[in-house]
Design a protein around this nucleic acid. Structure first.
Lengths: 350, 350
DNA sequence: GGCCGATTCTAGAACGTTCTAGTCAGTCGT
DNA sequence: ACGACTGACTAGAACGTTCTAGAATCGGCC
């Protein structure tokens, strides 16, 4: 029965218990547990055996308290944001292979960003990775004076303040989507935007300049949207009544796009036959066979990797801060985009 | 400029720094920071002022190390499972009002349950709250020998092993759904199940016994499904080809139900006019206006509250363990269910 | 004036680790 | 034979808190 608590008194076993059993000093046990050098193979085995026997498990608090490095990365994410969970997963992987641990702190309706960051700080994280933070730039700058801070999907206007930014080129993504649609023959392309969400402004701008470049400035239409399905659906209903009705819609988000899609389906407007839809994020949602959404891909695992990379670089002594790393998005063409319907196509300028 | 790091050497300020500045002992500062009694109002203010001035923040590691209680609840959840995020949110709230902190540890494709639990244990959590754990019962029992363990949505067959279980009455939920559909006049009701997912077996059983009780055993049909949209969609496509085609579908999940819904819409089979659909979870998804899914509600915040309550009770000395708390689900009627189409209705036995 | 009980404060020992600076053999080179 | 070196090990001081005792201080009351 090797799985019993194993130490006589109810307490959790410590280094000292292992040391006593193995007949060595606590320091040596520490060496063995850390896999540091300074112990012979024979005693190493003996100590490990003793540890196993009494079910010893290192106390990370004490460990972190003593060592000047905590090797802990604090990650703040939005509980209800699917794209964040993709990022978190990537961060776990990247952190592990860089030899760091991850402390998670969620933001939810009942839990503010301030609270989330506060606990991370209390846990002695060495750096902060904030996914789409909404906090004012001044607050981020303040934090950044205490430890390395990486903002992941949120752009900061003046790259100052020492906050490192890792993000996708949102404007470029919007441009790619518009180019794709125009190449298919669309001219009346509407954009359902993301309001004040991180990245929304850039996508809006990218959409507008792309429309301009194609000489379609007059036909550009931006509808107030948001990041939920509901936002997309209400915007889509408005579009159905609009004259001329657009032949394509670029949504802020995959979630938003799903809402658009759903509203069109309910109104019996076939996609992509009558109208094309493009999303943004290439989330799990979009990949699903029955949604099969053309979307602008943000490479979550690459963003995660870069964010961790920046944080680690700063921790390992790199002085340069306030950098901005922008990665290129890439259009993923799937089933929700096609040429506009015949009846409308002739409108295309010769 | 009150936001500067403020302590001469680069180190993070400690109790001793505050004590030196305020001209008191570290013990007294500790008293003030903990809001314990034993300090006069005057010095209390002075200490707080000093702390504020140098930007002191208590080190939770050291704090936890010293005090025998860590007041930390370890929560394991599935990153990609939307219902879990609802639960986590509730847990944050419940824990806070019980005076406990929460440590999050995610399970993801790249991060096993074992790893997740291992870090929680290393962080010295006093109890574990596991959301839908997949680990074998023996493993849970083993853990439960070390600290209080609460399994949230997963039922454990022999209530033994000391693991507390908090869950929804899944069979009862399925029954309610079937009753509702039968009351509307449906007789051919199919069930798209959840395979080996926690709760799936109970829902399947609830569906079967309910069908029996209505004398519809011969018409019961269970299709292998799963917990994603894709699973629902493939099952739905199979149903469309089935003869007789069912007039209603009970899906394992809201996500699964969404998949079913989508497949029907694409096939131009109107819901609920030709076929009714019921989900399970009452997740955000179902509530969205454009999906408007009739579903069996699991009260996430109540489940969370109960789970935290069990963990806390155990920690405060309650001996009784291995309890099972089952809460009743409730049907939420929305727009995806209605009477079966006229052409089929006459089949109902007089 | 002396004693009591609060109240306010402090010294110093924990907590479970890691780190620094050793000690103690044994080995090697000359 | 002797010092220098190496490898295995250890004593004891950190780390930043909280906790246990107990020391001052202060009215108030006989």
């Amino acid at each position: 029965m090797p799985a019993t608590p194993a130490v006589p008194d109810g307490k959790r076993p410590t280094l000292a218990d292992v040391a006593a059993l193995a007949g060595v000093s606590t320091a040596l046990v520490s060496i063995v547990m850390r896999e540091a050098k300074g112990a012979s193979a024979a005693t190493r085995e003996r100590v490990l055996e003793a540890a196993r026997e009494i079910g010893y498990r290192p106390d990370s608090r004490a460990r972190l308290l003593r060592s000047n490095r905590s090797r802990l990365l604090g990650v703040q994410f939005g509980l209800q944001h699917p794209f964040h969970t993709d990022l978190v997963e990537g961060i776990y992987a990247a952190a592990e292979s860089a030899g760091y641990q991850v402390a998670l702190s969620a933001v939810a309706p009942s839990r503010s960003e301030r609270q989330a960051v506060e606990t991370l700080l209390g846990d002695r994280c060495e750096a902060l990775i904030l996914l789409g933070p909404q906090a004012p730039a001044a607050r981020l700058a303040e934090l950044s004076a205490q430890l390395p801070v990486v903002s992941v999907v949120r752009r900061l206007r003046p790259p100052a303040a020492g906050v490192d930014v890792v993000r996708t080129a949102d404007d470029e993504g919007a441009r790619q989507a518009v180019d794709h649609l125009v190449a298919l023959g669309h001219r009346d392309i509407a954009h359902v935007d993301g309001g004040k969400a991180p990245g929304a402004a850039d996508r809006r701008r990218g959409y507008r300049t792309a429309m301009n470049r194609h000489g379609l400035a007059g036909r550009a239409r931006v509808l107030p949207g948001g990041l939920t399905e509901e936002d997309g659906a209400t915007a889509a209903r408005a579009l159905l009544d609009a004259r001329p009705r657009p032949t394509a819609v670029l949504a802020f988000n995959d979630r938003c796009a799903t809402g658009v899609l759903d509203a069109f389906l309910r109104a019996r407007v076939p996609v992509p036959d009558e109208i094309s839809v493009v999303g943004f994020d290439n989330s799990h949602l979009a990949r699903l066979a029955h949604i099969d959404l053309t979307t602008v891909g943000q490479d979550a695992s690459r963003l995660a990797e870069l964010a961790v990379g920046r944080a680690v670089a700063r921790l390992e002594g790199e002085k340069r801060s306030g950098t901005e790393t922008v990665i290129a998005p890439h259009l993923v063409t799937r089933g929700t985009t096609a040429a506009p319907p015949e009846g409308i196509k002739p409108v295309v300028r010769d």
